[in-house]
Nucleic acid binder design. Structure first.
Lengths: 395, 395
DNA sequence: AAAGTTTGTTTATCGCTTAAACTAAGTTTA
DNA sequence: TAAACTTAGTTTAAGCGATAAACAAACTTT
């Protein structure tokens, strides 16, 4: 309770430095004078902070700007190349790794198929991807500043993987495994939480205060961002809205509950419908690709199927809106490829089921980072950790 | 974006003063030396802050404490009587008003029945209650420092009542009405949000970081507290979890949705069941009192009814836990009186439906402020507003 | 060329926290 | 019972960061 951080001059400086950094990050190129005007900080204060940021390689001067009737301003820019971060999206049957600069721009990417989910095998694959990315990283003042990994499962506040059903992992300290190998600060997060954060910073959630990200893949996971911050519950396992009952007497779910949303609205549910409708008889790996083909051709049975899928997704979204009243809901992961066919039924369901006051306040968007939401989000966690340690952004 | 508050000496002082105040509030009686040890603030700093707090009547010295081998400490105490706040719970057929001191202790209380919900009539009733409470308020340095009102409806960030279905009110600037009459800062909040805040500060949610309060009355409203703070969505209408679909093909709800939780789990649902079962044939006003009587007598039909009620409440709670993973869920409002009969079915439903990892992490509690949750919460908002303006707590 | 503008730095001051010294007032020990 | 030790709280001097104001630099306009 009382372990609140006390105030001192150090705190003041950190706050202001963070404001200056933030302003340059979002308004670059910008001069010292402009920063002073925008932030309300004194010109002298801004000059001091900028000098320190330049010394620490986080900012650089990029020549002179246009004069507006007086001395020409010296324009400042963020040095995104002061260091590089690694972000990894660990899927059930793939690993996607990216190398990003401090602004989240992707410099390198690698994808590997996963043949099984044995811990030792997956670990080796991840090691190999990290090593490749490290080799490809350009020279920079701080080098590789961190590794972030998004995993399909519960992750507790100490970065332990409690349970990842689809990987059949339980209680794995993956952070330790990575850090002992590379001696680089590592952050483990749930896949949907990472995706939510990725979209928040670089994608469909930019400048959005309250946002819910819905990752619809094999299952459904959700990442909740409130007041620009990721919300995790007591034990870090909030956002299990895929296991929200939408049919109290519905089918039994492996999670223990009945009638869970993801039983009806996930990719797996779609595949089950295909099988029931006997639209195709290929093996399940390829089902979705084929479905997409058929949808493009306009097969009425397929369109009908996707229409129903959209409606059920809409029903869950109605619940989410009633619960969170967010500005934006972002749909991500593989379901995005059916965007053209599910958008209308989703919107129709909302129109039908939302109360007057909720209708206008929430916007439905689709992921704009596509396959990279999770990897970029994971990378952003380690960037944030690094900048926070350097006292350049708030803890 | 960049309108973040910049750091200066003033901010530092405010932070530390707030920490000192907070420490006295929660650990009183306490000495200056102890505060210094607990907070890490220098003894001199603590002395300065305490001197100011005493000068402003927020703290007083309460004689000497026990020596532990040296000079006796001077014990400090919060002056709860520096001012008084009015909290009002506006129900559909009642108004409950309380006068509280700055610590939320109830000094006076008044209840009035409401004969109808006409704005002018209700306004008059509220005026009259406020006047009575003001008259009864003891003399104090700051007098009546604020009025807080909890209402059964949507309240937007500007304290406008957007829509209160059960009062048949729409778009009412009640804050303005009260302030123009009394010239005292007034805060309007949703009833469930106020109740949640009340329990958080003074009741079943003390020291709980993440908590969801479920107000089960005529309808179901929920108040979400995360990180000790009330969460309201974009337009202030989050927490409508009563209108979460738990049966996708269920009955149509006036809100527009289908199969809403409150259709099955609210007080109204209970009354409807009674009617269907033809257990009683009295008029609806008295139904619940009679039901309680019968439950106490052990009528098997009634017990069965309450058992089912508990199960359905449990189904909704499972959704809430999956969504928020909170430490505590608090059940409040009139359903609390059936606590003895619904607790077991609720717990059983959670045991059945929650996943292993969620089972252990959330505790179900019942309101301990009883009828006063909302009024006390409303009062606490105005206290917070006052102390925040006096720079004694954070904005 | 002089006057006016805008940018960015330097300087003196203010207010805050802090460590250390100090005063006050007790308890323990011999 | 007096000396030694402990603890509480205040006073003092120092340090640090933000700020306003003065200043220097560099440009545009008249």
């Amino acid at each position: 309770m009382s372990s609140l951080r006390t105030g001192d001059q150090n705190l003041v400086k950190q706050i202001n430095k963070s404001i200056v950094f933030h302003t340059i990050q979002h308004k670059a190129p910008i001069s010292r004078a402009q920063i002073s005007k925008e932030t309300g900080l004194n010109k002298a204060t801004v000059s001091t902070m900028v000098a320190e940021l330049i010394e620490d390689h986080f900012v650089y001067e990029i020549g002179e700007g246009q004069s507006s009737g007086g001395r020409k301003p010296v324009m400042l820019y963020l040095n995104s190349h002061a260091g590089y971060s690694i972000g990894i999206d660990l899927g059930v049957n793939y690993i996607l790794g990216v190398l990003t600069d401090l602004s989240g721009n992707i410099t390198e990417k690698i994808t590997n198929k996963l043949l099984n989910t044995d811990l030792s095998y997956v670990t080796q694959q991840i090691f190999s991807i990290i090593e490749s990315l490290m080799e490809k990283a350009p020279k920079s003042p701080y080098g590789i500043i961190g590794i972030g990994i998004g995993v399909p499962g519960h992750v507790d506040p100490d970065d332990h993987i409690l349970f990842a059903p689809n990987l059949k992992w339980e209680n794995i300290d993956f952070k330790k495994i990575i850090e002992e190998q590379f001696h680089i600060p590592t952050k483990i997060e749930n896949e949907a939480n990472a995706g939510a954060h990725g979209e928040q910073l670089y994608g469909a959630g930019k400048n959005v205060t309250n946002q819910v990200y819905i990752s619809i893949g094999v299952g459904i996971g959700t990442g909740i961002i409130m007041n620009h911050q990721l919300y995790k519950g007591v034990s870090g396992i909030s956002g299990e809205m895929g296991h929200m009952t939408i049919d109290a007497n519905g089918r039994k779910c492996p999670c223990g509950n009945r009638g869970c949303w993801e039983l009806y609205a996930s990719e797996s549910a779609l595949i089950r419908s295909i099988q029931q409708e006997e639209i195709m008889d290929e093996n399940s790996e390829e089902y979705l690709d084929l479905l997409l083909e058929e949808a493009k051709k306009g097969d009425p049975k397929v369109l009908q199927l996707l229409n129903t899928q959209g409606e059920i997704i809409g029903i869950g979204i109605v619940n989410i809106i009633n619960t969170f009243n967010p500005e934006v809901i972002i749909i991500g992961n593989r379901m995005v490829q059916f965007k053209n066919w599910i958008t209308n039924p989703i919107e129709r369901t909302l129109e039908e089921r939302l109360s007057l006051y909720h209708k206008s306040s929430t916007e439905i968007r689709f992921s704009i980072l596509g396959d990279y939401s999770t990897a970029l989000g994971a990378s952003s966690f380690s960037i944030a950790g690094f900048l926070s340690e350097k006292k350049i952004i708030d803890a």
